[in-house]
């Protein structure tokens, strides 16, 4: 269950030390944009030592430099032995990129005596070309766990003006989401970049959740709780989901063909949604199982 993914610069010891205390479901240790070229090797070493010493209690994502740069292979070589849950490749533009990465991961896994295919991929899609190829990227390897939209680089690529409301990325959000769901994988939304605007963050996260995203990235620890809140079912939603499931059970017991609740027919999509809400609530340890 990944609602929130918190970016942590790979060259910041203080933040690495406390990376997993902020309540994020996953942390993204960043070797890419947060790290200047003259610090790339230092960050690799720091991230390695941090992961080994701290045994983080969250899911671990490591963001690596893009294919075609001098750092790409060095990054992979350094991070695979750390057994992260996910690698996040950057500037992913097509399926060849992911195929290349999957092959390299297999090779490095073998070299390190690790189980093959264990490390999953969350491609960061942040170019117009990447958005157009989203579905192919999603299907490029079994390792692809979810697609992640990077709206800053993407809107620059579009020559669009980036706004808090995000109308300029509506197409990309929809496209990423549709591609991910079509491939039966997860979809993660771009971070909200105004660190001090907690209200704006909550609005943006709520929009992403309403659209169907699985979760959202954060560039500040102060955004984590807002994101977690937006992507967790509310008490009313959980209560309603249990009511739906109980009504269905009752209907089956009575041999009814069609079941209604509060005067509304309960069809399959409603039941599926209720099941998902209950499942999520259980994973998150939210109340409501007394109805079971």
């Amino acid at each position: 269950m990944i609602r929130s993914l918190l970016f942590i610069p790979g060259n910041n010891p203080g933040m690495l030390l406390n990376a997993d205390v902020h309540g994020a479901d996953a942390i993204i240790l960043d070797l890419e944009d947060a790290v200047s070229p003259d610090q790339k090797d230092a960050a690799r070493i720091l991230v390695r030592n941090a992961v080994r010493a701290l045994s983080y209690n969250t899911q671990l994502v490591i963001r690596v430099n893009p294919l075609g740069t001098d750092y790409y292979l060095d990054d992979l070589k350094a991070v695979v032995p750390l057994k992260p849950d996910f690698i996040m490749p950057t500037k992913v533009d097509g399926e060849e990129y992911i195929k290349d990465l999957a092959e390299r991961l297999t090779a490095f896994e073998k070299e390190n005596g690790l189980e093959e295919g264990k490390i999953k991929i969350i491609p960061l899609i942040e170019t117009a070309e990447g958005i157009e190829n989203a579905f192919r990227i999603a299907k490029a390897s079994k390792r692809v766990f979810g697609l992640f939209l990077g709206a800053e680089d993407y809107s620059a690529d579009l020559r669009a003006h980036r706004t808090k409301e995000g109308d300029e990325i509506l197409y990309a959000r929809g496209r990423i989401l549709n591609a991910a769901r079509a491939a039966a994988i997860e979809a993660f939304d771009t971070p909200f970049t105004d660190v001090n605007d907690e209200e704006g963050l909550e609005k943006d996260a709520f929009l992403a959740r309403e659209m169907g995203f699985t979760g959202k990235a954060a560039i500040s620890p102060r955004h984590v709780s807002g994101i977690n809140k937006a992507f967790s079912p509310t008490k009313a939603e959980i209560d309603y989901a249990y009511e739906v499931l109980m009504a269905i059970e009752e209907g089956i017991r009575l041999g009814k063909g069609a079941v209604s609740l509060r005067g509304k027919m309960i069809d399959k999509p409603i039941v599926d949604r209720a099941k998902r809400v209950v499942e999520t609530a259980k994973i998150l340890g939210l109340g409501g199982y007394e109805n079971e």
């Binding site: 406390n18 205390v21 309540g23 620890p221 102060r222």
Partner: peptide
Amino acid sequence: TRDPVGLK
């Protein structure tokens, strides 16, 4: 404080 560790 705005320090996220302090807030935590």
